[in-house]
Amino acid sequence: MSNPDLYGVLGRFEHPDALLEAIAELRKAGHSRLEAFSPYPVEGLSRALGERSRWLTVAALVGALLTALATYGMIWYSAVIDYPYVVGGKPLHSWPPFLLLAFVLAILAAVLVALVGMLMGNRLPRLYHPAFNVAAFSRASDDGFFILIRLERNPEDVERLRRRLDDLHALDIQEVPA
C-alpha cells in the first residue's frame, strides 16, 4: 500500500532523445498526466507531450486587431468629433498618421497578449513545485532530463509506474511527495 499523499513518480534520463522516446511510449500506454523537465529547450518536446497552443496565436491576433480598431477609433473621435482642429492644412481625418499609431499599439497588444497568455498557459509564475522536494531533481537545471508521471486516483499504481519507468531505462526513479 503506497502513500496516499503522493504527487507522482519521477525518472531521469541522460539524453533528450531518450526523454522524447519515453514520453512517446508512456503516451502510447495511455498515460496522459505527464510533466517533463529539461535544462534547455528540447525541440519537439511540447509536441511529444501533446501540448498544442493554437489559441495563443489566435488570441494575439485578435488582441492586435481589436487594439488597432480601438486606437484608430479613439484618434478619429478625438481629432474629428471631440476637438476638430486643422493642423498644417491637413484634413481632420488624416489616415496616414492614424494608421501608424494603430499599428504600433496593435504590435504592443500582440506582444502583451502573447506574453501574458504564455505565462497563464504554463501556470507561471509558480514558485513551488512538489518535485523540488527530491534532491536529485536539481539536475534538471544541469544535465538531467526528467519525466514526472502524476498519479491518477488509484494509489496502487505506483509500483507499476516505477517498473514502467525502469523498463524505459530511466535512472533515479523516485516517488515525489505531494
Binding site: 498644417g88 492644412g89 491637413k90 496616414p96 498618421p97 494608421l99 501608424l100
Partner: peptide, 12 residues
C-alpha cells in the same frame, strides 16, 4: 513604402 508616403504627405 509607408515611410515614403508619410514623409511626402506630411511635407506636402
Amino acid at each position: 513604402n509607408f515611410a515614403q508616403l508619410i514623409i511626402i504627405w506630411s511635407g506636402n
